[in-house]
Design a binder for these strands. Structure first.
Lengths: 338, 338
DNA sequence: CTTTAGCACTCTTTCTCTAACAGTGCTGAT
DNA sequence: ATCAGCACTGTTAGAGAAAGAGTGCTAAAG
């Protein structure tokens, strides 16, 4: 892989990213001051090496997955973010009011709009959420709302209907007992402790304890500290020429709607500070897309931001955008602890 | 419109609903023991009346919007829900644990699965939510969570980062002041009262009152009692033969993602107990779909359930499904006040 | 007066064929 | 090493033909 071969491959990849059309030898003549025949020879070698593919015997060349991989690792310039891209994102960070977690979501929405790809923010809620407080508020004679809050600031609430055999005071008393006994308990252990430790206690103190117990049991049971998922530009795939087939569109749309699938985007994300690129078969989510992702940290919580698009993705641009966001997050995170 | 003409129209509509293919005269001969010529004469009349259309001069007939309308009003039989449909829904209501609002969502998901249409549950949160309680919980030295609860059981929470010049006690004190002064205030007036009534008070009592004030201002400002929206089967449109065009699919998919649009589904829903059908141009949402909707009430809150599909929709089935759900809701709602 | 057989006509769908085109690989000369 | 030239291959677009589905109309039969 000498210099010329490299830059021919680079040119082909970048042209294809722009145009989505197979690149022929003639298109490169001018750029390199070579005849099409010479370019063709080089192309044949690049195909031999596995970096290029043909759709059929007499079509232009298209980068293979290995070609994209080689491009990403050796040819792509770590270009700075462009001015207009930066401008849009700057507005977000300029707004000091915005909590960082909201800022990230907004940023990724903008990236989706700018690039016509789909973006994902996967806020990985740490497993070690502990119960901080449960409170009960009566809405009226036959409805109460139970609010559960963890030490990581996750709050869930649930409205319960109660009949008039139940005294609201008893429910509130129970919540006080729970607070005394279980604060600090990992949230996913609360149900168990409720059954084993709390139930025997309230049995003695609360008349309708079975019903009251069930209310809290339900409230905690519903409280799954799931990963927060924020998707933007879900419909941008409609604009990508590679998805001109309805069944293909449907396949992808279904994946976007399936949280279990989306979570695969952040699978094994142990890459502390690196932007990671998964091309086609390299990713778990779908063999026909490229995923570019970056881990982020705010307030001690971690998460992953990712952009999903066709393999013919504007790698350079996305990388520069994600780098910019990361940089801004670092700055804000360091400056005021937010 | 004599009896025969009616039943021919009915047959055409129902056949087209099943097959999505234009209906020719021959297809009806057997059913009516008439020659195709006679059927053709009748079809010509029905077309004259505006109930049928042709795609081109020699194609079979397709119901017009007026045709569907006529079918819905005069021809469709108020058939009972089929056994297998009922079975699926019964499971939901058999589960007494489920709060009704969750049950509705589940039901509509099932309807989407059964029918390949898209369904929407629009929980219209009544405008008269009043502040019931605001509480502040400290997560650690520099994070607090503010929780706002209304008398209708709507709860919102927001995490704030604070620097160490702020004393958490002051925030909590402020929340107590707010509770004393503003409980019962309509939630959308709280911001104003906060500014006019509360600010002057805390100015005297709280040191960093500007910053503290802003926290609460933000928390309430974020609290828009929006309508809750639950969509199921968003991707089912991919399965409908009428949407075989990507740009059409994109148009609809974008609408499903736009909450403002979805809310149009329930616009002017004053039809207390009636199932309402909007065919094509009759609805605001999109001229190429039919929307069937029903208002529901649970716990004094109202909302709308709706099914969105092609104009060639299985009207009978959807109506019977919605009726069944409504009936079940009534029963449960009446029995135990849920 | 209603029904129907028959027929000409129209439009769609599918297939085949052709011509133009874009691009390749190879060869032999520079 | 480079490149002009040429034969070759697969795609695309268009035209034409044949089959099929369905209609409208007419004139005769019930």
């Amino acid at each position: 892989m000498d210099a010329r071969r490299n830059s021919i491959l680079k040119e082909i990849v970048e042209t294809f990213i722009k145009t989505a059309k197979p690149v022929g030898s003639k298109a490169l003549c001018d750029k390199f001051n070579l005849s099409s025949a010479t370019i063709r020879n080089e192309m044949a070698v690049l195909e031999e090496l596995g970096y290029l593919e043909k759709n059929h015997v007499s079509s232009g060349r298209v980068p293979s997955e290995a070609g994209y991989r080689y491009y990403v690792e050796h040819l792509m310039e770590a270009e700075k973010i462009t001015g207009s891209d930066m401008l849009k994102l700057q507005k977000i960070f300029a707004n000091g009011e915005l909590e960082l977690s909201d800022a990230i979501n907004k940023c990724m929405e903008i990236i989706s709009d700018l690039t016509n790809y789909t973006s994902v923010v996967l806020g990985k809620n740490s497993k070690d959420n502990n119960l901080l407080q449960v409170s009960v508020i009566a809405l009226n004679e036959n409805q109460v709302v139970a609010i559960v809050c963890t030490d990581k600031g996750n709050v869930e609430n649930k409205v319960f209907s109660i009949d008039n055999t139940i005294d609201v005071k008893e429910i509130i008393k129970t919540s006080e007992i729970i607070n005394k006994m279980l604060v600090g308990t990992p949230i996913d252990e609360v149900s168990l402790r409720l059954e084993e430790d709390v139930k025997p206690v309230i049995k003695r103190q609360i008349k309708q304890y079975e019903t009251v117990y069930n209310i809290f049991y339900d409230a905690f049971n519903d409280f799954v500290v799931g990963n927060s998922i924020h998707i933007a530009g879900r419909n941008n795939i409609f604009n990508q020429p590679e998805y001109n087939d309805i069944s293909e569109l449907k396949r992808l749309a279904n994946k976007f709607d399936d949280e279990a699938y989306i979570e695969k985007v952040a699978e094994n994300d142990n890459d502390e500070n690196e932007i990671k690129i998964f091309i086609g078969d390299e990713n778990e989510f779908d063999p026909n897309v490229t995923i570019i992702r970056k881990k982020y940290h705010i307030n001690g919580e971690e998460g992953t931001i990712a952009v999903i698009g066709p393999k013919r993705m504007d790698y350079q641009r996305i990388v520069s955008l994600l780098e910019y966001i990361d940089e801004k997050l670092d700055k804000r995170g360091g400056k005021d602890g937010k």
